[in-house]
Design a binder for these strands. Structure first.
Lengths: 308, 308
DNA sequence: CACAGGGTATGCGAGAACCGCATGGCTGCT
DNA sequence: AGCAGCCATGCGGTTCTCGCATACCCTGTG
């Protein structure tokens, strides 16, 4: 027993419009033979003739005209469904887990999150801060979908095998100084300006990147050592010393702290790198794009095209 | 590239309602395996997941919920189309050509026509009166679809081979008398009452049924012979004589004519028979039904069931 | 922990459906 | 009569559908 099908309805509608199997075949990309059979199948399903056959074309019966009209309604509803689905498809849903080292977690990642939220309100994003080895481990075991780490001069060479790298930004390393400091009013300082300063440096677990003094200073004076990124900046604000500051976090310095650029020809910079699984999900890809855009908005984006 | 199908939409809707492939399979008469594949096909067509899979069943994604809602709309429109077509199918269109001998054409056939018109307004019915040999010939050459003839005592035995008989009515033969006649006031007369009467008989082409005097009268007095049925009744009204009258035409006598029943144990009656081609069309079958109902309403219907 | 039960995904294969190519039949025109 | 236009249908190659069987995962129970 034949059944009404969407293909059959498309054929009935087209034949009713054109009054010819041959014309409908051409319009729909079939042969006349296939159209004749589809009409026959719809006639079997309808239990009555849908078209009167003449030597030159066909004319719909009352039943044929009724079905063609209904076909337009049905096919319109299918189109609406498909359009709605396409709209939804372009909006992601589900979960995305992002991991980043603290400096990236200060400004870059929150801004990327805002972008993701605007474009995909149904996407649930979680952000974790952590040290690079921990982030790598969690990415590899699929407990994170995207991570942001720092790579380059002065940092360890991590094994990034089996992961996909998405270069993000060439970092502009700066110095955080007290806003009352003599250097805070300079647009740019030199290593010599920094040589007499007291440095507040970071301390963490073994293998973690260390925020020391300015990298090219021969013998910097270390005044304080603390683990907490937040504490370090608090100390700067209190006038206890100066500290290194990644450019991507420059916008997040607290009140009483000023970020100063350093002119040092001996310094080659660092890169903040986004890492995903080799075959990143659609959501992960969207996150990478959001991160790149946020970095560009920070004015330090590396314009390298991302391979897709 | 998978396409949205009506089967697929039914599956998506059922799975969204039941939250389980297995339950949907049972409800729709498929196996779980077929349901899984239909869902996969709809997901391919939609370009996104429609259901989240859990150990105990599934849950629609946002896209799945959207598509299930649209599926209800689409399938509802298809149901409406099918219902409308079924309604149309039960209403016939096209042409139907009916032939009948004059007595049947007087009341029976017009009443059947009224019934057909009410049930099938789109059916174009034409009625032709004629003598039985002519009607048979036209039926056999498919120039008529249904004919009504008289058969039985006193009438020729026609060759009805290759035609399909639909017995209709045992005729109640009457006598048409002038309304001023002494017999017009009797509920029922006898052959003896009729023996002295002047008869107005019919005359037609060779082989045609003849309307003579009362069939069982030994030596009736023929006063007038005329071919026209209408003229014959007119003569009765004018008091020129009496004439035979089939019961099925009793309701059509003109003013000034009264139909009187005759009590005659020697008279076995006649049958009005409907004839069609061996494989009658749907319209022809509808006409036969209408004729039988009209005859029943005339009170003289033979209750024999029509073989279908 | 082991096992049973519930539930989805997928390989394999048999049967059904689809539809292009080729051809037949009918009608209308010249 | 011949020809063109157009629908119907036989034949066969390809694709689709879906049941059966099996694999895998998760959850609950003893």
């Amino acid at each position: 027993m034949a059944e009404v099908t969407l293909v059959g309805l498309r054929v009935v509608r087209e034949v009713a419009d054109t009054g010819s199997f041959t014309a409908a075949a051409e319009a729909l990309g079939y042969t006349q033979s296939a159209i004749s059979r589809q009409v026959a199948a719809m006639e079997a399903a309808a239990g009555t003739a849908l078209f009167e056959r003449f030597a030159r074309g066909v004319r719909p019966t009352a039943a044929g005209a009724v079905l063609a009209a209904h076909a337009a309604t049905v096919l319109g509803a299918v189109d609406t469904a498909e359009r709605d689905l396409a709209g939804l498809r372009d909006r992601l849903a589900g979960r995305l887990r992002l991991g980043a080292f603290p400096a990236a977690g200060a400004v870059l990642v929150p801004r990327a999150l805002a972008r993701l939220r605007a474009a995909h309100p149904g996407l649930a994003v979680t952000i974790e801060e952590g040290a690079t080895p921990a982030l790598l481990s969690r990415l590899r075991s699929a407990r994170l979908d995207v991570i942001v780490i720092g790579t380059g001069q002065g940092l360890p060479d991590y094994d990034l095998g089996e992961l996909r790298q998405h270069p993000l930004v060439t970092d502009d390393l700066r110095v955080a100084v007290p806003s009352t400091h003599r250097l805070s009013r300079k647009a740019r300082v030199t290593p010599a300006d920094l040589s007499a300063e007291t440095w507040i440096v970071g301390r963490g677990a073994r293998g973690e990147p260390q925020f020391g003094a300015w990298p090219t200073l021969a013998d910097p004076r270390i005044g304080h050592t603390t683990r907490s990124w937040t504490t370090r900046l608090g100390m700067v604000a209190a006038g206890l010393g100066v500290a290194l500051l990644p450019g991507i976090a420059a916008d997040s310095v607290p009140r009483g702290v000023t970020a100063v650029r350093v002119h040092d020809p001996a310094w080659h910079g660092r890169t903040a790198t986004v890492l995903t699984a080799q075959a990143p999900s659609v959501a992960a890809r969207a996150a990478v794009r959001a991160l790149r855009r946020a970095a560009a908005a920070l004015g330090d984006a590396d314009p390298a095209a991302e391979p897709e």
